Computed example of a mutant assay.
Amino acid sequence: MPIIPPVTANEPLTAFDRLLTIMNDLRENCPWDKKQTLESLRHLTIEETYELSDAILGNDMNEIKKELGDVMLHLVFYARIASETNAFTITDVLNSICDKLINRHPHIYSDTDVNNEEDVKRNWEQIKLKEGNKSVLGGVPASLPALVKASRIQEKARGIGFDWENKAQVWEKVEEEMQEFRQEYNAEDDTVIDQDRAEGEFGDLLFSLINYARFININPENALEKTNRKFIKRFQHLEERARENGKQLQDMTLAEMDVYWNEAKTL
């Protein structure tokens, strides 16, 4: 089978056709590709999406390019599998998203007037309800990680005007939830607590913090992941310095570990 050469000019349609042709070749001739189903690809697609996320957080443009290609391959793969049972084709997929974008941007493709981004979001949610969505929150996937889901729920509610008026009100809510959590889990003594109630209050506190982050344009998922990475980098420095000095972390005091931890904070 002849190898299809890469597109050298800036011709995205030709490059996309190359991918479709290769996908068809693999589906018809490669033992692994022939065995795949929508279900078998699902967990691989999730993995590829996380790899793309890692590349974006690392601001690695070359990796972003490669991971986008992996994700695009999966999208084409799903469409090819669906076409084999006449469920839909890649053309149907592309027409569907184009039609949706046109319908949900009446300020571009019709005569609706908008003043700002918030008007666009509000129109988007109202149009979705007209299209048959029973709830504004219906489009939030149930399987989303809780932190991401909280952000999306709040954004959806804001889209129809259900929101705080200003960030000062949101911060008051944060302080209120903090106080309620302290009442359930007093850090100053060892009183037995109601675990379910404490968990509920802690959830309320996190939800209010995520709300405040939204008001000051901080993405809580990105913020937490950056802190995760910072902690990992500093902890691995601690481990490396301990090895250099012939020590085991479990045998060191917290004060000894803090010396290396503070070193890491200056790097």
Rank of each mutant, 00 (worst) to 15 (best):
Q236F: 06
K230A: 11
Q250A: 11
F231A: 10
R241C: 06
Q250V: 13
Q236A: 09
Q236C: 07
R229H: 12
A242Q: 04
E225H: 05
Q250G: 00
Q236W: 02
F231E: 07
N222T: 12
R234P: 00
E225L: 09
E239A: 12
Q250L: 13
R241M: 15
G246V: 04
L249A: 07
K247D: 07
R234G: 02
I232H: 08
R241P: 02
R241L: 13
E225Q: 12
A223F: 13
Q248C: 12
H237S: 03
R229Y: 10
R243D: 10
T227L: 11
F235S: 09
K230M: 10
H237L: 03
L224D: 02
H237C: 04
K247Y: 07
K230F: 05
L224G: 00
L238W: 02
N222D: 13
F231T: 09
F235G: 00
T227D: 01
L238Q: 03
L249G: 01
D251G: 05
Q248P: 01
L249Y: 04
N245Y: 03
E244S: 07
D251S: 12
A242Y: 04
K230Q: 12
K226R: 12
G246W: 08
E240N: 14
K247H: 10
A242R: 00
E244N: 14
M252V: 12
E225M: 04
R234Y: 06
N222V: 12
M252D: 11
E244R: 09
H237F: 11
F231W: 08
L249K: 09
E244Y: 03
T227C: 02
H237T: 10
R234D: 05
Q250K: 15
Q248R: 14
N245L: 14
N245I: 01
N228P: 00
L224C: 05
